[in-house]
Simulated scan of single mutants.
Amino acid sequence: MAFKVIAVFVLFLAVLTISCNAQSLKVGFYEKTCPNVEAIVKETTNTIFSRAPTLAAPILRMHFHDCFVRGCDGSVLLNATGNGQAEKNAIPNQSLRGFGSIDRVKSAVEKKCPGVVSCADILALAARDAVSFLNGPSWKVPLGRRDGRVSNFSEVLSNLPPPFFNITQLIASFAAKGLNSKDLVVLSGGHTIGTSHCTSFSNRLYNFTGRGDSDPSLDSEYVPRLMNKCRPGDQTTLVEMDPGSFKTFDEDYYTLVAKRQGLFTSDSALLDDNVTRDYVRRHAISSQRSKFFEDFAVSMVKMGNIEVLTGNNGEIRRQCAFVN
């Protein structure tokens, strides 16, 4: 009983810390110091995505990976130093793409407003613009984050929820960051864009329980289609997370999950909780795109507030891959 009380108190403090930090962020934070920052980021990202549209989804994923480890402080952007490996060296981050794109956006911002806008804010804006570019929602991004000076690869696995988590683990992982079950199912909708390596889900196809079987929670007719794309041991092939519309931000993801065709164990797990299952089913059987878009915007702002550094904490990096 005492342990439960302590656990609840710790979680309360974590949520309180997130809320207090978030109060320091505000829309229009750079109104006087860099008034055109959002236009610069949007113009630069649109140029990048126009030439390489498959980079939009990785930028959204990068923001998620950043926020869940040390908060939204741009630590995922840092290169390793002689003191140890950085977050980007951890296995879940080795498949991240788009670091050069963020560097390019940062350079464009630095030309107009040197030493003013953090890499963490640039990543938050770029993620919003990536979703918008793929016909998804747009939202007002509260700004004022400062960049962290620490990036440790050993902290990634203990903070970033992997694709094989069950629903209990997912809910706990999100709760630890101040996000609830609705945020979990809404942000999972980001899987409507992008691709994944076979290694992230091939365990569901081959020898799932040690008997040469497949994951029973995965649609039996979908399994052979995935097997045709991902042979045992395949580490290079990319598979669309939302087949047929992986370059368009829409609610088709929920239709796939409802049909037991979610690519990851974490996708299928959304059917194992009342809150997440109801959300999936509602958006699978009727067109509620505007509601999903509204929900996604709200949850993205909440996620973007996780453990942010503000005020005199952290720094404004001159280059996103290096501390000053």
Rank of each mutant, 00 (worst) to 15 (best):
A14T: 15
A14W: 12
A14M: 13
V15K: 10
L16T: 15
L16G: 15
L16D: 12
T17N: 15
T17L: 15
I18F: 04
C20V: 15
C20T: 15
C20D: 12
N21P: 07
N21H: 11
N21C: 13
A22W: 09
A22S: 15
A22E: 11
Q23K: 14
Q23V: 13
S24H: 15
S24Q: 15
V27G: 09
G28P: 12
F29C: 07
F29M: 07
Y30P: 05
Y30E: 05
E31K: 13
E31A: 14
T33S: 13
C34W: 03
C34Y: 01
C34M: 05
P35K: 09
P35Q: 10
P35L: 06
N36M: 03
N36I: 04
N36R: 10
V37G: 07
V37Y: 09
V37E: 12
V37K: 08
E38Y: 01
E38L: 06
A39S: 13
A39W: 00
I40V: 14
I40Y: 03
V41Q: 01
V41D: 04
V41G: 05
K42Y: 01
E43K: 08
E43H: 03
T44D: 01
T44G: 00
T44V: 01
T44L: 01
T45V: 08
N46R: 11
N46K: 08
T47P: 00
T47E: 14
T47G: 10
F49Y: 11
F49S: 05
F49L: 09
S50T: 12
R51D: 11
A52Y: 11
P53D: 06
P53Q: 08
T54N: 12
L55Q: 10
L55V: 10
A56Q: 07
A57N: 00
A57S: 04
P58D: 02
L60K: 05
M62W: 02
H63T: 03
F64T: 10
F64W: 08
F64G: 05
F64V: 12
F64A: 06
H65D: 13
H65K: 06
D66C: 07
D66H: 02
D66M: 04
C67Y: 04
F68Y: 00
V69E: 00
V69D: 02
R70F: 14
G71M: 04
G71F: 02
G71E: 06
G71W: 00
G71S: 03
D73E: 08
D73Y: 00
D73Q: 09
G74T: 04
G74N: 08
G74C: 06
G74K: 06
S75D: 12
S75C: 09
S75V: 08
S75Q: 05
V76E: 01
L77S: 06
L78N: 07
L78M: 10
L78K: 05
N79S: 06
N79K: 02
N79Q: 02
A80E: 09
T81D: 04
T81P: 07
G82T: 02
N83R: 12
N83P: 04
N83G: 08
Q85N: 10
Q85E: 13
A86M: 01
A86V: 04
A86C: 06
E87S: 05
E87Y: 02
E87N: 03
E87L: 07
K88Q: 12
K88R: 15
K88N: 13
K88L: 13
N89T: 11
N89G: 02
A90L: 02
I91W: 01
I91R: 09
N93I: 03
N93F: 01
Q94G: 13
